[in-house]
């Protein structure tokens, strides 16, 4: 088993993507022996109603007949009406978990005071609690393109350590994939939480373990090899970069990185 926890289909409004279909990803996976890909539809980051992107992915999955097994995530926008009904419906239809996109859906991972409420509402936490009830994982990607080259219509922000802390400290039971997170964005309390929280998984897309032994040591101190996973951020990036890190850095446990994510999925446990 070889799981890639960080892949997408669909369109990115700011530049063209190649291999951005299930068939395209399957080709990339087979090139390097990846057997499973955790996938969501990028369109759901930009559609007002994210669930229509989930339905698109569902349709694509129905006609897909490649070798790679996909673990589809439904993009859930807790700031949109009927999100819970849609989320439950997608799991019933075979989706393997949820993805949150706070930077693109306009809500915070922390509790927020809304204009029509009298007390703070923690919308992201409601999704995590639902995920716990349904025993499915949640993925939250810290950022996609490098901020120095982003379109002026994109955000220059990434999700930071404290943002993750505000959410993940409130529910420690759900399996959560924190993808494309840069160690420079970690805060002390998020580092402590990572050490403590058993089912938080990170990839290395924003870490340079060959160049920076310090960043690698810090990451391993926080999450250990038990919680590091292979993630390629395909099709945004060339996949070989992550394989080179995994194969040429002796401190990393290659076999564990390929399979750690299985713990998060009912069908793979």
């Amino acid at each position: 088993m070889f799981i890639d926890i960080n892949t997408y289909v669909g369109h990115w409004p700011f530049r063209n993507l190649k291999y951005n279909t299930l068939e395209g990803l399957d080709k990339l996976a087979r090139e390097y022996g990846v057997t499973h890909m955790v996938v969501a539809n990028l369109n759901g980051f930009f559609y007002k109603d994210a669930n229509t992107a989930n339905l698109e992915l569902l349709k694509e999955l129905e006609s897909y007949n490649g070798e790679t097994e996909f673990l589809p995530l439904a993009i859930v926008n807790p700031a949109y009406p009927e999100w819970e009904k849609d989320a439950r419906d997608m799991i019933a239809k075979g989706f393997a978990g949820f993805e949150l996109a706070p930077l693109y859906h306009g809500y915070s991972l922390a509790p927020e005071m809304l204009y029509d409420e009298y007390s703070p509402k923690h919308r992201a936490l409601e999704v995590l609690n639902l995920a716990e009830e349904l025993d499915v994982p949640v993925r939250i990607c810290a950022g996609f393109e490098n901020f120095r080259g982003r379109s002026p219509f994109d955000t220059y922000e990434n999700i930071k350590g404290d943002d993750y802390f505000a959410l993940l400290s409130k529910n420690k039971n759900v399996h959560v994939f924190v993808t494309s997170f840069a160690p420079s964005a970690v805060s002390d309390r998020f580092a402590e939480l990572l050490k403590d929280r058993e089912n938080t998984y990170l990839d290395l897309t924003q870490i340079s373990p060959i160049e920076s032994k310090k960043a690698l040591a810090k990451t391993l101190e926080n999450v250990t090899n038990k919680k590091l996973c292979f993630g390629s951020l395909s099709p945004f990036c060339y996949m070989a970069a992550e394989l080179i890190k995994m194969e040429f850095v002796p401190e990393l446990d290659t076999e564990a990185m390929k399979t750690n994510a299985a713990r998060a999925f009912k069908k793979l446990r």
Binding site: K18, S208, I210, E211, C237, Y238, M239, A240, A241, E242, L243, I244, K245, F248
Partner: peptide, 15 residues
Amino acid sequence: DGMWASSISKILDAD
């Protein structure tokens, strides 16, 4: 420019 894995991957994976 000191970024070994990413730079090598560009060559290995480019179509």
